[in-house]
Design a binder for these strands. Structure first.
Lengths: 212, 212
DNA sequence: ACAGAACTACCTGAATTCAGGTAGCACCGA
DNA sequence: TCGGTGCTACCTGAATTCAGGTAGTTCTGT
């Protein structure tokens, strides 16, 4: 019996998965957790074979949770559930130890196949046959080649810029010199190889370094 | 018998809804359409009592489809399905004639209740009891009071700004004077009551006037 | 304990954006 | 046909951002 845990805050999705596997007697959903906290608590008690993990959780983001789970439970297979809009973060999840990547608009057959594959120690990726996905990859993958590593302060300032604040406002907000903000901003412009804050923010969004 | 049509490109969601209503003998899902084109074709043939409409469709956006359906089928009840992240566009959908608004993380009870309500000519909104939703509303609703009306040119320039282009680049791209771009930008800054392009873009995103 | 990274702050000149105008031309509906 | 709206273009001065530096202090990991 393959035990499956769903980590997703949308009961509809969980319902859909139940539908898909109800005719598969060797598969069983043992738990449905709505957020990362519940999920980690549950995993301390019981260790399933497969975890279906949503990218967007209400508390911490799926990427972090993926990393934590991979660290604590190296044997468990993690299949990431996502919408096509977020397909570009595949590589980041794979780096964090995800075993599979399923779009939420999959068929039952593909779903069962995904589970078989990861249990067989293969990495499963949703069919990227459809042109949307390919286009998405083509446009984002180049930019993805090297995701710049940002420091804590840089991330903080990036987020504030994204909130619509300008240099002086951020300086006041963080009790720092405007010069300092400028320095951080400049460093980020370099790291991202762009030449304007707007382009910086766009690229950061494309790379999923920003939520909004 | 209440006929329900689902317009959503995620079979998982459809599966979840099927789960929810399988014990309700008076409800029946007569079709599951994956995009707007299919949906409109189907509706020409058969007219259901209730349409469950996803906000994000692969072809045209849910808001437009909502308007079209409302125009062609004034009697059909439209319930919009959404994630919490997009909850801020409720008012826009209501303006386009939606009858209900359901978050995808609803319970079965709430779901049934929503259907009963809209059939009873009431507008149903998902419980906004949870604090996330309230916070979301508090922050966005003020800004939402008046969604600025943008002209075609303004939208075009807004989109290019969002792509990370700056004034001179846009001017070159559109074969216009930089002065002209500045004028349009300025007008938008006024319409949105902001004082920087970054704030403008943030606000536009908050108001769902931009996709990215 | 020491090196390297991160954080802070400063400077200058050039480019862009912001704020506040004015103004001509085309189009469309009343 | 006349008024309103949208699109275009221009001007000026102030503010902010960009590019390319230097440099001292604090954290952090080995």
């Amino acid at each position: 019996m393959i035990r499956i845990v769903i980590i997703d805050d949308h009961p509809l999705v969980a319902g859909g998965i139940e539908m898909m596997i109800k005719s598969e007697s060797h598969l069983s959903i043992v738990a449905h957790l709505q957020n990362a906290k519940e999920a980690l608590q549950f995993l301390e008690e019981s260790c399933p074979e497969i975890i279906l993990l949503d990218v967007n959780l209400p508390d911490i983001d799926g990427l972090q949770l993926c990393e934590i789970i991979r660290g604590n439970y190296p044997e468990t297979k993690i299949i990431v559930l996502t919408s096509i809009e977020e397909a570009s973060i595949i590589t980041q999840f794979l780096q964090k130890g995800a075993n599979g990547f399923l779009l939420k608009n999959i068929s039952k057959e593909e779903f069962i196949q995904a589970i078989d594959s990861v249990l067989d120690n293969k990495t499963f990726l949703s069919k990227i046959a459809n042109e949307n996905m390919i286009r998405h990859f083509a446009s984002v993958n180049n930019a993805l080649k090297s995701v710049p590593v940002l420091t804590r302060r840089e991330k903080e300032i990036l987020a504030l810029l994204n909130e619509g604040m300008n240099g002086p406002q951020i300086a006041e907000h963080l009790f720092l010199s405007t010069y300092t903000i400028e320095t951080h901003r400049k460093n980020m412009l370099q790291k991202f190889s762009v030449s304007s804050t707007q382009a910086l923010l766009k690229k950061a969004r494309d790379l999923k370094l920003l939520l909004t």
